[in-house]
Write a protein that binds this DNA or RNA. Structure first.
Lengths: 228, 228
DNA sequence: GGAGCCTACCGTACTAAGTACGAGAGCGCC
DNA sequence: GGCGCTCTCGTACTTAGTACGGTAGGCTCC
């Protein structure tokens, strides 16, 4: 009883808001947001359920918190340097982060109070385009276009019924059974393209990204188009 | 007791799977998916909770069902006719539908088994592009690009903290308080553009959509570019 | 015209999950 | 050497999903 730790069975790091949120992300990554409960989180952290309430007010605050942490994982574009490669890099990073934490996409819709990482993120993105010579208005257009693409792509990736190799064959069977007559074009696309060995929907990302970046490049004011 | 209805307090239409799902959409539209529970749904339908289980196996089936119903609300593109205006029309319709049922976006991520309306939808979209002369591969590219944009835009719209006029002023206050130093570019964009009277984020949609359609137009094989 | 059955609906009750309330344990401070 | 503060937890209440079985009205077939 005189030892340093009396109640701690293991020398667990003391809880903190940070550790609570990291634990929540770990649970969500491993078993989905659906099974992120206060109890499962407490189990993950090695504590009892009510302990986490010392660091967050309620579950909503956890959800807001982990969405913001996920945004924090996305590489910020740099204000200096070629805008196109900066924006490109951050788009690719965003997709990677969101495909690592697909549950974050679904949460975005219901959480309307952005955290600091999210705001910092938006600021860097807008700043990069402004520095590159885009007008405020063009920046708004470009921002809406690029981010819509990135989030939408991640959303599609997350809701795809054939994410892992095992399920591809199941889908193939289902497609063959019911689709040829009812959904001829879907059938064609599935058999001739998507279900071909080696196909990876993720590769589509950069194709579309390049299309968008090309289109934006054409619309920068001439005065800034060749700043370097 | 001899009358036609014995237990029905009002002459409520008999329940059906359709009515259950429509009721679920009504609840979700009115108070969010968060407050769509079996009990709230039963209340909406004027029955007791356990009655809905005669028409659906469980709540997940309800969620799958209403996502599919929402997809069914989107106007299908027509196979005949100018592909560009068909695709444009369906994109605009999709955005309108998703902004009417914003909760559907968040659900998409967690529901990976598409329903018939969803499949029919994909089929029509792909078919329209194929008929227009896009190769299978180009169709896949275009499809991923367009749909990512549409869904992503809807997602951003849904998670915007300034959807209605009342909250705009709250946001303006918050922005002024904390953002000028920490988030200079965000501050600039907010004050000079977004918070201007008359600004509507929704207007950005067609700007980006036109950019994408222009880019796609350039990439159709020449043989099909002028089919009419 | 009644016995059986089917359909639609509901009552009860169990389980999981969020969380209010307050207690106790260690620890620093006067 | 008691006081209060911080962290953690035990208990218990509430809401939500849903298993299980009941019941009432109508239909069928004799």
């Amino acid at each position: 009883m005189s030892d340093a730790l009396s109640k701690r069975p293991d020398q667990r790091a003391p809880l903190s808001r940070e550790r609570v949120l990291r634990g929540a992300i770990a649970v969500a990554d491993a078993r989905g947001v659906g099974s992120l409960t206060i109890r499962s989180l407490a189990h993950e952290l090695g504590v009892k359920p009510m302990s986490v309430y010392h660091y967050v007010a309620n579950k909503d605050e956890i959800l807001d918190g982990i969405v913001d942490l996920v945004f924090g994982e996305i590489e910020l574009p740099s204000l200096n340097g070629d805008w196109r490669s900066q924006i490109r890099r951050r788009a690719i990073s965003a997709r990677r982060v969101l495909s690592r934490h697909p549950w974050a996409i679904g949460l975005m819709e219901s959480r309307t109070s952005p955290g600091p990482a999210t705001l910092r993120h938006h600021d860097a993105f807008i700043g990069t385009l402004r520095q590159a010579g885009f007008s405020v208005e063009m920046t708004a257009h470009a921002y809406a276009l690029l981010d819509s693409y990135v989030y939408g792509f991640a959303l599609q990736e997350a809701s795809l019924p054939f994410n892992d190799a095992k399920t591809v064959t199941e889908v193939a069977v289902a497609v063959h059974r019911a689709s040829a007559d009812e959904y001829p074009y879907l059938f064609e696309m599935a058999t001739e393209f998507i279900l071909q060995p080696g196909y990876d929907f993720g590769n589509e990302f950069e194709v579309g990204l390049n299309v968008i970046l090309d289109a934006l490049t054409r619309s920068i004011p001439a005065t800034a188009a060749d700043s370097s």
